[in-house]
Nucleic acid binder design. Structure first.
Lengths: 205, 205, 205, 205
DNA sequence: AATGAATGAGCATTCATTCAT
DNA sequence: TATGAATGAATGCTCATTCAT
């Protein structure tokens, strides 16, 4: 093993560590004060590094926010796909999707705040994010519903896209209410509540 | 009509007109560039007045955004209550609520953008707004569902609050998708789609 | 008496009255908040007139301050000259000058504050004022001292100008201390204290 | 000398140098245009730095003015006390005080202007400054006069406080005349003129 | 003469980003 | 890599002054 190769590994790890530290610090700061009111020096301070060091890992404040979204979304999608591959029933799939959605955001309140608040804080971010990962997420839900319609477990008179949006919107609202709530409660169990209605509707049979 | 009353009217109208003009201009500008990236001079320019004039009608840029929300929400709530008073069936009531929600926002794209994007752009605004009008709105939905459960048309094993949030979240998502969409389509008809699922669920019976 | 003549007199009086009212109001406002922190609208408000009306009587905010100085100084000088004309002894003259100085400013705290504070708030005003009335005032003191030296009651080894400045400076300091003092006491009696030293010095004979 | 001590010194010196440079520049600018008419960018420009750099050393424009006063007054008081400690005669002490007063201000015309003009330009500053250093200064004069009365060289029928104010007022007036004068002359010698009268009075014996 | 709504120039301060060390 | 001092562009808000009524 060459000398440079030996020294590279820990260096790469260190680089990755500092990037991580900045992203974690930024998530915390953005969650507390909002993107526009957060100063780069706040992030640097929270991360325990000098202001200028931030720019060795990110090109701009804007890029930090993007990275937060990208990383979280990529991880969520990848993990989700892996889990869903092992489930065959469309109904069970949607159940796991809803659970994952609320588990992930419910496990990291700062991240949840950034997603619910900052992501929506500008059409610019929403569009960019939409292009990036959100569309893919919505598509997974849509396909699952499509499968269910084909397999006959879901009504065929509904547009899968609309169903997907409704499910997503309902879950999203659960998250928003959770981060705004003064009460502290586990978010994940709300998945069941949402699906009970989504699957069965509210009408008395 | 007395002389003073006659002369007062145009003055009041003028004041009101300029306030209106500023709010309209601000809605347009905020929708286009976002609150933080919008300059007061942009708003003044759009309204065709001098920068300083803005401050004769509003104390700060922040107050303008608040006024946009307050005015729109107050109008929506008041009109909604009036309409709902004439409907007795809970199911029909929810239908009208969903329609009104999408009609109102669908009729003014800029306003919709400001509501969907800026209102969520900060937990501060969300909380303030929540306290102001949003909570009341959600409550109207909740009560309607409660009525429906009591009258036996809605399932009794569902929490009205959760149902209300799900319906709101679903409608909200329709709006968000609509403002982000590159395609132009009427928003109001989505109310039916949402309610079809909300009422009946997605499962095959 | 012609119609216009009849109507002119009250009009002139009215004009003069409003000018007076503005100057009085401005003196009060300047005394309280300082020239730069006082708004023209503060002055108008205090005078009970509209902002714009101020500009029918004065060309600018700056001119108001000038007018306050000019009017007060002209009145002081003219009254002083009249009084002094009836006094022949230089010593008695200086006594009356000192008394007048402190009486006038001691009788109108607001005016005193404006004189002591605002007049010195800019070299510009000081120079202009110096040119206007202050130099004349100092000259009256100087001449009186000169007379006293010629008549043999004052020492001849002192420069009259320097004596005049010293007397003025001492009186001025009495006023400044008076306006800054948290205690309320009559200012005029300090004239005697100052002159006791000015005339006799502080050394034990 | 340790390594860290060596490396610290230039850094500290640099920081101190830039603060000094800003204070010097501000004194110059304030003297020329007055506090309110001076822009922060004027000060930065005069100091040869960027506008924002000013705020790395001072919290506000206001703080710069305060610092000018505080620093000059502290230096004056400290140096004065040291010198006076070596003088025992009250008469000689007052002589040195008067000389120091005029020497210090006579040596730095800009500083003198700021002291004479800006310090008096607002009751706010006067009060704050009064609390800070001026009261202490006046007290030193008063005590010296008190000593002189006790040792029998000064008349006992005069109030020390009033004497102190008179002396201060007289010196102050010398400075004010000096900065306003179009003629250039040394200020310090005026101390003798003032004391000649202060000590001996103006009356022929 | 009087009004007061409208104007728009003016300015202290902030903060993302750079760069010499 | 890391630092943090320095930069300077950017902007919300104020207020003296104007002018149509």
């Amino acid at each position: 093993m060459s000398r440079s190769a030996r020294s590279n590994t820990p260096v790469r790890a260190a680089v990755s560590d500092k990037r991580e530290a900045i992203l974690r610090a930024a998530t915390k700061v953005f969650a507390r004060k909002g993107y526009f009111s957060s100063k780069v020096s706040d992030i640097a301070g929270e991360a325990g590094i000098a202001d200028g060091t931030v720019y060795l890992y990110f090109k701009s404040k804007d890029e930090i926010l993007h990275s937060i979204f990208d990383r979280a979304m990529a991880e969520f999608i990848s993990e989700g796909k892996k889990e869903l591959a092992e489930i065959s029933e469309p109904e069970a799939k949607l159940h796991r999707i809803a659970e994952l959605h609320l588990e992930k955001l419910g496990a990291d309140r700062d991240m949840a705040i950034v997603f619910q608040v900052e992501l929506r804080g500008s059409t610019k971010f929403m569009r960019e994010f939409s292009a990036a990962g959100f569309a893919e997420y919505l598509d997974i839900i849509r396909e699952t519903i499509d499968e269910g319609q084909k397999s006959g477990v879901f009504r065929k008179d509904l547009k899968p896209v609309v169903c997907a949006k409704i499910l997503y919107g309902a879950l999203d609202e659960m998250v928003t209410n959770w981060i705004l709530s003064s009460k502290s409660y586990p978010l994940a169990p709300m998945a069941g509540e949402v699906l009970k209605i989504f699957f069965g509707g509210v009408m008395e049979k």
